[in-house]
Design a protein around this nucleic acid. Structure first.
Lengths: 337, 337
DNA sequence: AAGGGGATTGAGAGCGCTCTCAAAACGCAC
DNA sequence: GTGCGTTTTGAGAGCGCTCTCAATCCCCTT
């Protein structure tokens, strides 16, 4: 019997059992090639026998890496985190990609505005190798602060101001334009829109797409603004109906709001799509279950997450990455338009 | 000018600037009382001036703590992660509580069954101080393996077999019984149920509650089984209608399935609640937006998350904790019943 | 058989922090 | 002033791992 010291086995323990030095065990554990097959096998056996697992803290201390990537969800996004399928979807994509790369996912749900300080502290303390930022509102100072600390940052969504850091986004305007053109092409004569918050690029760009599509026509834009929630969609739809009872189509900047809008339309006695055509944006699960089912602009949610992770990892590995990656959207036809 | 060494400041740097020893700086940073006010102030100033942030890896190496808690979402749960409000809701609760305790949240989304090994590795490597397990299916070997490694584990949901580890759950059966009793009391004469998966305690217990409520009556149980998704709720409802066209009420084991059931009822031309009363379970956001709005059994989702975190932290701190914590549920009356 | 060169291996120096233990400093009673 | 009991402070030993650098092997070549 080996007299194994008590407690978790360390490199030293393994080395002793295998009759080699710590350095050699380290080489085997980290897959270095410069180890003779026989020795490698003996070490591997010792590792297995002892159930050795490297201590990540010790490793980080010397490598200066942690193999951890933070996913930061700022306050406003946290609020809708469990009501919306978007962030969980992105998060899942990020998780998938990180798992594939054997990195860990640290989730920072900033439930209070004060969490900013906490986030910076983590990053400053080199707790993480990189940061994925979800959902930036307005002129968030966070990305700049992070960049200043020299940590790779990739954001979901183009920032409002000048982009001083890489981001992934989808072609909001293009997708919306296609959707509104589709409505025009089907003969809709009075197309309104329920826009998203105008302090978020997603809100702004989708509205811009709507305006762009209408620009070449004789239709005047008709806009109500919501905040991406169902309630706001309902309220906005009612307002639009009141303002323009004759509208026969509406592009809604999110599926959740579209669901609310459908409800308001139903309550107002309008038939969809006969009286009013509705097109949403996102293509989250609910779109397949509204009544009627929702025609919508699909954005590749999980793919956004995967790309975010991939870019931040590449950046952390010292690679240069594209300052922006814009993923395509796609009009998905269902019953509502 | 101080000649500050380049790179991140360490304890040493701070110590030199403040003219004290490393130990003293450590004491100040960690809030030990045994430091003279004057010295403490000088050290604090140096810390501020240098922007010193402790290196968590170095700290973990000696303290044997990481201040990280893992939230593990097994494969099946990951699949529904972005379509359901339950797990994101629990996760949010966990995040809140951990933030308050200044702990970090490591998210392990097990996208493949093979991730088990990965999870164990993290835990074994002492990457985390504790583990919160969400959604255990059947006889999952994971908690036992984790316990064996001596890591505090707290599960969301009572395990199927004998509970060898602490868990938090809600009073499924009690809540359902109350709901079905309510239906009985309102004169419903043929009450069916759409149950959840029978390899999950939530599925089993809710069905048991239904049976229990019917036990004292002359009604025979009428059961269809779903898997907590909307689709399965729709399918199950159709099956029930076919089997028993005369049913006048249905308790559905999740809001998402209830939403599907409502749709199936509408398509079958049944009015809710006039022809058929519907009660769901969960009280997620969608319950307030179905048509008609959904009467449902509320479970305190975020609170479950908070309790999970609290218990695992207490356990990690060496405290003894309750082997089980059962939170109450509550019938929320809306339009559907 | 000797010499050279690449392949393997091991010794040892940290990485930045905590914590024990002993020394130094201080306060106070006498 | 002396002595004793507290505080307060500092020195130094690791925590477990990686990585450089030098030593040792081995295998050819001549």
């Amino acid at each position: 019997m080996q007299d194994t010291p008590p407690g978790r086995p360390t490199l030293e323990t393994v080395a002793r059992l295998a009759g080699v030095s710590r350095a050699t065990v380290s080489r085997v554990v980290n897959g270095s090639t410069a180890v003779k097959p026989g020795v490698r096998e003996a070490v591997a056996r010792a590792v297995r026998e002892l159930g050795y697992v490297p201590n990540p803290a010790a490793r980080s201390l010397v490598t200066q890496r942690t193999d951890v990537v933070a996913f930061v969800l700022p306050e406003p996004a946290t609020r809708v985190f469990s009501d919306d399928a978007f962030f969980p979807g992105v998060l899942r994509g990020v998780g998938e990609e990180l798992e594939a790369a054997d990195k860990q996912l640290l989730l920072l749900l900033a439930s209070a505005p004060s969490s900013h300080e906490r986030i910076l502290r983590y990053v400053h303390g080199r707790t993480v190798d990189g940061v994925v930022l979800a959902s930036l509102h307005g002129a968030d100072p966070l990305p700049a602060s992070l960049e200043a600390l020299g940590v790779p940052v990739v954001a979901s969504g183009r920032p409002l101001g000048p982009a001083t850091f890489p981001y992934i986004d989808v072609d909001h305007a293009g997708g919306v334009e296609a959707a509104v053109r589709y409505l025009l092409q089907r003969g809709r004569a009075r197309i309104a829109t329920i826009a998203g918050p105008q302090d978020m690029v997603a809100g702004i760009d989708r509205l811009a797409g709507y305006r762009a599509a209408l620009a070449g026509t004789d239709q005047e834009p008709l806009v109500a603004v919501g905040d991406f929630t169902r309630e706001s969609g309902m309220v906005a739809m009612r307002r639009l109906l009141q303002e323009e009872p004759g509208l026969d189509a509406v592009f809604v900047a999110s599926d959740l709001m579209a669901d609310g809008a459908l409800r308001a339309l139903r309550q107002a006695g309008r038939r969809v799509p006969d009286d009013v055509a509705v097109i949403g944006f996102d293509d989250v699960e609910i779109a397949r279950f509204t009544e009627p089912t929702l025609t919508t602009v699909r954005q590749p949610i999980a793919e956004i997450g995967r790309r975010l992770a991939r870019q931040v990892l590449r950046r952390a590995a010292g690679e240069d990455i594209e300052p922006a990656l814009v993923l395509p959207t796609e009009l998905v036809l269902r019953e509502s338009a």
